[in-house]
Simulated scan of single mutants.
Amino acid sequence: MSPEAIFPIDWMCHKLKVSRASFYRWLRPAEPTKTQVRHDELDAHVVRVYKREKGKAGRDQIAILLAQEGVSIATGTVGSILRGRGLRAIRMRSWKKTTTVDPDARTEHIQNHMLDNEGKRDFTSEVPGTRLCGDITYLRTGSGWLYLATVIDLSTRMVVGWSMAAHMRTSLIIDALAMARDHGHLDVNGAIFNSDRGSQYTSGDFQKWCFANGVTQSMGAVGVLG
């Protein structure tokens, strides 16, 4: 009887020039890491919500909807998963900015803190909770128009605060920023919050809330975030 018939594995490893240990590792794939398991779970959640919303929700909206279910995920991660699967949100004209400028608002003291040393736009941060931005959008639902205010951490790119209502009064954006504060997403030493110059963000009530909570407001030119 030939050696290969008696020791088939040894013979095969010899011919392929691999060790027996390598062969057995290939035969029994390693268990997935915790990171891989977590990514697979997030992937499944993102695809599930994308399909449930019939492709009409983008990365920001999916991150918000998942957060409401208790699933924490950065908007950048949602975007990566969507791109990896070749999925894109269907653009809806009903999802757009709604803020308008109040010409009588006192904003002379509010500077643009989203600039680097060369005066260029800089929406980055190395420390979570120190630099954030927010906006108001609205969308059509089966029950009518729904207004959504969001707060995004510029370090993690996560939606750390949000508020939804059938109105777009100042309380809408205060509630969104209060959520970020209550969940520990505002630096205790002070945070910078950037927005456009919409009337809600320049209102006296919102300015008072920011001052009372150690938040420094930041605003760029009219019509832009920075």
Score class of each variant (00 low, 15 high):
E126I: 09
W209H: 02
R157E: 05
T100C: 10
S203A: 12
A63T: 02
I64C: 12
A212R: 15
V188R: 13
L177I: 10
I152W: 04
V47T: 12
G58V: 05
H167A: 08
A180L: 00
A166G: 15
T35S: 14
V71Q: 05
T137H: 07
T100E: 10
S155A: 14
V37N: 12
T33Y: 08
Y147K: 05
G190I: 05
I173N: 01
R197G: 06
Y201S: 01
R85G: 12
Y138N: 07
R28N: 11
N112Y: 06
M219H: 02
P103M: 01
I136P: 01
F7R: 13
D196R: 00
L27G: 01
N189C: 09
T137A: 06
K34L: 13
T137P: 05
P32N: 08
R48H: 13
G142P: 04
H45I: 10
Q217C: 07
F206T: 00
T124R: 10
P128K: 05
M158Y: 09
L132F: 03
A191W: 03
H113P: 01
L42D: 09
L82P: 02
V222A: 11
S80M: 14
V222R: 10
S19I: 02
L154A: 01
S80Y: 15
L225V: 14
D153N: 03
Q68D: 12
S199L: 11
M179R: 07
T137N: 08
M158E: 12
G198M: 02
L65K: 13
A74T: 07
W11Q: 13
F193M: 04
F7S: 12
A89W: 08
P29K: 02
R20C: 04
D60Y: 13
A105K: 02
G220W: 06
D116Y: 06
R83K: 14
G184A: 03
L154K: 00
G223E: 04
V159T: 11
W95R: 14
I73L: 05
K208Q: 15
W95F: 15
A57I: 05
H185I: 04
A63Y: 01
H109I: 05
S72L: 15
L27Y: 10
D205N: 11
N117V: 13
G79L: 04
V49S: 08
H183Y: 13
L148A: 09
T35H: 12
H45A: 14
K56R: 15
